[in-house]
């Protein structure tokens, strides 16, 4: 009987346990695609570096994500709260269906593509993506 109860509790709290962080896998993937010597300092520098957009405003990652990646950001246009990028910040679901960061390869790639295009007007190289993840990994 006891075992059943324990099993039941285990099953019901299982989803709450943290899912695996995929950054190491992503880094080796980018290495296989031609990146090398990923540099956290380069990623950090790029994070706050501003670029002029077509509209004339200055854009950087920090525009929406904040320069301190341990704090929540806010979308420039919609004002929607964006969860902190740092893996060290405990995950809190802001909306139903929210999942922790770095647990879905497709989602990582989707947002790299969208946000690089928005910020730099082009997609990021494998090297740049690796640098970013290297920087974010230990935050």
């Amino acid at each position: 009987m006891k075992k059943v109860v324990i099993l039941g509790l285990a099953i019901c709290f299982a989803p709450a346990l943290a899912q695996a962080n995929l950054i190491p896998e992503m880094l080796s993937q980018y290495e296989a695609e031609g990146g090398s010597n990923f540099d956290a300092a380069a990623g950090k520098k790029m994070w706050s570096q501003e670029f002029a957009s077509e509209d004339g405003d200055m854009r950087s990652c920090a525009t929406c994500h904040n320069s301190d990646v341990r704090t929540a950001g806010k979308h420039k246009k919609t004002g929607k709260v964006i969860a902190a990028m740092a893996p060290s910040v405990p995950f809190v679901a802001l909306e139903e269906g929210d999942e922790p960061r770095y647990t879905d390869v497709k989602k990582i790639e989707k947002w790299f593509k969208r946000n690089c295009k928005w910020t730099y007007g082009r997609e990021c190289t494998v090297q740049e993506k690796g640098d970013f993840l290297m920087f974010l990994k230990d935050q």
């Binding site: 246009k77 497709k106 989707k110 593509k113 969208r114 946000n115 295009k117 928005w118």
Partner: peptide
């Protein structure tokens, strides 16, 4: 989608 009301909303 690349210019979705001013936002980049590219999808696979």
């Amino acid at each position: 989608l690349s210019d979705h009301f001013g936002e980049v909303a590219d999808l696979e």
